[in-house]
Simulated scan of single mutants.
Amino acid sequence: MTSVDKPTDQVRQEGDSQQDSDTKAVTQAALLDAFGGVRGTVETMVPGLLFVMIYTVNRDLHSAAIAALSVSVLLVIVRLARRDTVKHAFSGVFGVAVGVAFALFTGNAKDFYLPGMVYGLGLGLAFFVSALVGYPLLGILLGPIFRENLSWRTRNPGRKKAYVKASFAWGTIFLAKAAILFPLYWWADTAQLGWVLIALKLPPMVLAVYFTWLFLAKAPPPIDVFAEMEAEELAEQAAKAATERAAAAERGEA
Rank of each mutant, 00 (worst) to 15 (best):
V4L: 09
V4P: 07
V4F: 10
K6F: 02
K6E: 13
K6M: 15
T8M: 11
T8K: 14
Q13Y: 02
D16E: 15
Q18T: 08
Q19I: 13
S21Q: 10
A25T: 14
T27A: 13
A29Q: 12
L31Y: 01
L31D: 11
L32W: 07
L32G: 15
D33M: 07
D33R: 12
D33L: 10
G37D: 00
V38P: 08
G40R: 01
T41G: 15
E43P: 05
G48I: 02
G48T: 05
G48V: 04
L49W: 04
L49V: 03
F51R: 07
V52I: 09
V52R: 00
I54A: 03
Y55G: 12
N58T: 12
D60I: 00
H62D: 15
H62Y: 13
A68L: 06
A68S: 14
V71C: 04
S72A: 14
S72C: 01
L75P: 04
V76E: 06
I77C: 05
V78K: 14
V78Y: 11
R79T: 04
R79W: 00
R79N: 09
A81F: 05
A81S: 11
R82C: 03
R82P: 02
H88V: 12
S91N: 02
S91P: 00
V93K: 02
F94N: 05
G95K: 09
V96F: 00
A97C: 09
A97F: 03
V98Y: 06
G99T: 02
V100I: 08
V100W: 02
A101I: 02
A103Y: 05
L104H: 11
F105K: 11
G107N: 04
D111E: 08
G116Q: 11
G120E: 00
L121Y: 04
L123I: 07
F128A: 14
S130E: 02
A131K: 06
G134N: 10
Y135L: 12
P136N: 07
L137W: 05
G139T: 00
L142S: 00
I145L: 13
E148Q: 12
E148K: 07
S151I: 07
T154Q: 12
T154W: 10
G158K: 02
R159T: 00
A162S: 08
K165S: 11
S167W: 04
A169V: 01
A169R: 10
W170K: 12
G171E: 08
T172L: 15
I173D: 09
F174C: 13
F174Y: 15
F174D: 15
A176V: 07
K177L: 06
A178W: 09
A178Y: 09
I180C: 05
L181T: 06
P183F: 13
P183E: 08
Q192F: 03
L193I: 08
W195F: 12
L197R: 08
I198E: 11
L200F: 10
K201T: 14
L202E: 06
P203D: 08
P204I: 01
M205T: 09
A208R: 01
W213R: 15
L214G: 01
A217C: 07
P220F: 01
P222C: 02
V225H: 05
A227Q: 15
E228P: 00
A231G: 01
E233F: 12
E233G: 06
L234Y: 09
L234T: 11
E236R: 12
A241Q: 13
A242G: 07
T243E: 14
A247F: 08
A248R: 10
R251E: 14
A254H: 12
